[in-house]
Amino acid sequence: MESPLLRTAFRRAIVACQNPAKRRVGLQPRRYFATPVDAQGGRDDIQAAPPIRFTSEDDQFSQTRPRAELITNDTFARGGRGGGRERGGGGGGDQEVDYRQLLRRIRVVPASPSYFTATPRYTDDLLHLSSLLRKHQLLPMVMPGEAPRVAWKTIDQYKTELAEPIRSKSYNTLLQLLKRLNYIHPSLMPQEITDALEKYKRDVQPHLNVPNPIVVNEYGVAKAVGRRKSSTAQVYIVEGTGECLVNGKSLTEYFGRLHDRESAIWALKATQRIDKYNIWALASGGGTTGQAEAITLGLAKALMAHEPDLKPALRRAGCVTRNPKRVERKKPGKLKARKMPAWVKR
């Protein structure tokens, strides 16, 4: 009975005879290796170089590795600067310490665990704030809206300080930790959290800038300054019968438009105080509309010096908030700021 191996060999031989392209070459090319061996007929006297032993004598180590010194605490205690070998002191006898052997096992360890990250300084700050929050998260907190107002550094200022590419999402995570730590009750705030928060505050806190209060002098006169566009108005207000002078002229003589007259005394009209105060205003710059609205702001600020309780009513009337809008300048080739001439085809 034929074996499967013999049957397969016969089949391959028949296929090779029918298809000459699949015939195998009987003689294989001889391979030569870089290192001569006996099978290749090489020379017996050619041998490989002996392996380098880095753990041999000191002179061999000095040829393969640069010289270095390892100073240990024991060396400082003895007042020496360990060079190569040194005998140990104390009860150890004459045991020698090979500092070159110790130097081979030294590995530089980074001081920070985030040294190999793309943003090591940011990661250190994030880890530091997170550890402070875990440590003091059980301290009492103030109610929302009662925490001290703090202006934190912007992302551009923080990136410039660290010189690292910080993303907005990453910086928002840092701000959330800062705000959470800022909600700790001020009377129980630890000193380490206070020092940590000072690092992220702006140099100038706009919330601490308090404007000078407007006071009523000994003559019963309150002075305030109002601005609108490029106009400025100094307004003096005193209790009286309702007279109003602008640059030495009456209100009707100085402002020809009814809208400008109402705008100038709108603070008194909204609070129903027209016949209770006398007004003297000095306006300059801009046009009549800008001067009238500048008088409105100055009059409202001076009126609050006499009656501080009128601030909510004046705020609702729109007299306290300054409008920062300015007139857009005229562009070359246009009739106004954006109006094109009629002959220009659209």
Results as ranks from 00 to 15, higher is better:
Ser3Leu: 11
Ala9Leu: 15
Phe10Arg: 14
Arg11Lys: 13
Arg12Met: 06
Ile14Thr: 13
Val15Glu: 14
Asn19Ile: 07
Pro20Ala: 07
Pro20Thr: 06
Arg23Ile: 03
Arg24Glu: 13
Val25Phe: 08
Gln28Val: 11
Ala34Leu: 09
Gln40Tyr: 03
Gly41Pro: 05
Arg43Glu: 11
Arg43Gly: 06
Asp45His: 13
Gln47Tyr: 01
Ala48Arg: 12
Ile52Trp: 09
Asp58Thr: 13
Asp59Glu: 14
Arg65Ala: 06
Arg67Phe: 15
Ala68Trp: 06
Thr72Ala: 04
Arg78Glu: 04
Gly84Met: 07
Gly84Tyr: 09
Gly93Leu: 00
Gln95Pro: 03
Glu96Lys: 14
Tyr99Glu: 06
Leu102Phe: 09
Arg105Phe: 06
Pro110Ala: 06
Ser112Cys: 02
Pro113Ala: 05
Tyr115Glu: 12
Phe116Gly: 08
Tyr122Gly: 02
Tyr122Gln: 05
Thr123Arg: 11
Asp125Phe: 07
Leu126Trp: 10
Leu129Asp: 00
Lys135Glu: 10
Lys135Val: 01
Lys135Phe: 03
Val142His: 07
Val142Ala: 02
Met143Cys: 12
Gly145Leu: 05
Glu146Cys: 00
Ala147Tyr: 00
Pro148Ser: 04
Lys153Asn: 03
Ile155Asp: 01
Gln157Ala: 08
Thr160His: 08
Thr160Ser: 10
Glu164Leu: 03
Pro165His: 03
Arg167Gln: 07
Arg167Pro: 03
Lys169Gly: 06
Asn172Gln: 15
Thr173Glu: 15
Leu174Met: 11
Leu175Ile: 14
Leu181Trp: 01
Tyr183Ser: 15
Pro190Gln: 01
Gln191Met: 08
Asp195Arg: 03
Ala196Glu: 04
Lys201His: 10
Lys201Gly: 02
Val204Cys: 00
Leu208Arg: 15
Pro213Leu: 00
Val216Asp: 01
Glu218Trp: 03
Tyr219Cys: 06
Gly220Lys: 09
Gly220Phe: 00
Gly226Ala: 01
Arg227Glu: 11
Ser230Thr: 10
Ser231Met: 01
Ala233His: 08
Ala233Gln: 01
Val235Pro: 00
Tyr236Thr: 02
Gly240Met: 01
Tyr254His: 09
Gly256Ser: 14
Trp266Pro: 00
Leu268Cys: 03
Arg273Leu: 13
Gly285Asp: 00
Gly286His: 02
Thr288Tyr: 07
Gly290His: 04
Thr296Cys: 13
Thr296Met: 12
Met304Gly: 02
Leu314Lys: 03
Arg316Leu: 12
Pro324Gly: 02
Pro324Gln: 06
Glu328His: 09
Arg329Asp: 07
Arg329Asn: 08
Lys334Glu: 01
Ala337Glu: 09
Arg338Asp: 10
Lys339Ser: 12
Arg346Ala: 08
